[in-house]
């Protein structure tokens, strides 16, 4: 019988039509406008704009640091989600709510707060840039507690200041500062995608693994991680996408030094400031393309890991 295969669920064409229309209106048409506008440039001009040294340096900063921030968030976000799901402790609800704060905060506020904290005169920045005095006085206090003489304590702290001179790390106004800001804004994504999966995960699975003789590490690596991986990858992708597009918070902490700490969105803004619409859309088009390719890769990876679980179960 030459009958078309039909889905059991009704309304396929209606929902597909709606999906395509909605996606087109909200996503595709605005993005197509970017590509159309940038097409006003000849290919040679386009290439010249998007491959200028400053622009290329900004891709490295934006994409490199966004990937790094998403990776760091994947590890620590998983840990956070784990302790929120598996343990109960006083103030758990509060901690849970705190996770969402980077979502709600205007990004400029985050940028200003982080800069104030990590600048050379901010209290974290001071500590990180010149750790000597702090560690020295800590050691000296410890020495006194242990019954040492005051003179020895003083020379101990002095030696510490000397030994650690030049060992500090500058965070604000360096690429490291950008990384801090991107980690901050990306944190909720990983936690919130992994959390529900962890909540659904039966403790019995781990108990079964243990009773079958699995080590703790093996249980994590062979039982838990494969189940968590798809959600973890989604969180990674979301955190990455958010970080690539981030402007407000980064701009305050980056220092914006050409070739060192300029992010691609800043390059786009500078072009707009000079009324160079076409140049701005050219860079935006490259950024979109790179983001799309990376997100697609992550999606493929996710599909693959999802399949592996299903196959493993079946």
């Amino acid at each position: 019988m030459a009958r078309r295969h039909k889905s059991v669920l009704p309304g396929f064409s209606l929902t597909l039509g709606y999906t395509l229309l909605y996606l087109s209106l909200i996503v595709l048409i605005p993005l197509a406008a970017v590509f159309l506008k940038s097409a006003e440039l000849s290919p040679a001009e386009f290439w010249k704009v998007v491959s200028a040294p400053r622009v290329v340096a900004s891709y490295k900063v934006s994409f490199g640091l966004s990937l790094a921030a998403a990776a760091i968030n994947s590890v620590f976000g998983l840990l956070l989600a784990w302790s929120l799901v598996r343990y109960s402790f006083p103030g758990k609800k509060l901690v849970d709510a705190l996770v969402d704060l980077p979502f709600a905060l205007p990004t400029a506020v985050a940028g200003i707060a982080l800069t104030a904290l990590y600048a050379s005169n901010g209290w974290l920045g001071k500590l990180l840039e010149t750790p000597g005095p702090f560690i020295g006085s800590l050691l000296a206090a410890l020495w006194l507690r242990l019954g040492g003489t005051e003179q020895a304590a003083e020379s101990l702290s002095g030696a510490c200041v000397e030994a650690l001179a030049g060992w500090g790390v500058k965070v604000a106004y360096t690429p490291l500062g950008i990384l801090v800001a991107l980690i901050f804004i990306g944190l909720p994504f990983v936690v919130r995608t992994v959390q529900p999966i962890l909540e659904d995960l039966d403790m019995e699975l781990e108990e079964a693994a243990a009773s079958l003789g699995a080590q703790r590490w093996q249980t994590f690596y062979r039982v838990l991680l494969p189940i968590l991986l798809p959600a973890l990858l989604t969180g990674f992708a979301l955190a990455f996408a958010r970080a690539v597009g981030e402007y407000g918070s980064v701009i305050f902490i980056a220092g914006n030094t050409p070739l060192v700490s300029e992010i691609t969105p800043l390059i786009i803004i500078t072009k707009l400031e000079q009324y160079d619409y076409v140049g701005a859309t050219a860079v935006a088009a490259v950024m979109l393309l790179l983001s799309f390719v990376l997100l697609l890769l992550i999606n493929v990876l996710q599909a693959w890991s999802g399949q592996r679980i299903r196959r493993g179960r079946g």
Binding site: Y173, I251, F252, G255, N256, T257, P258, L266, I269
Partner: peptide
């Protein structure tokens, strides 16, 4: 110039 802020207020 160690820092290039986006605007005058910055």
């Amino acid at each position: 110039v160690p820092v290039l802020d986006g605007g005058g207020r910055g």
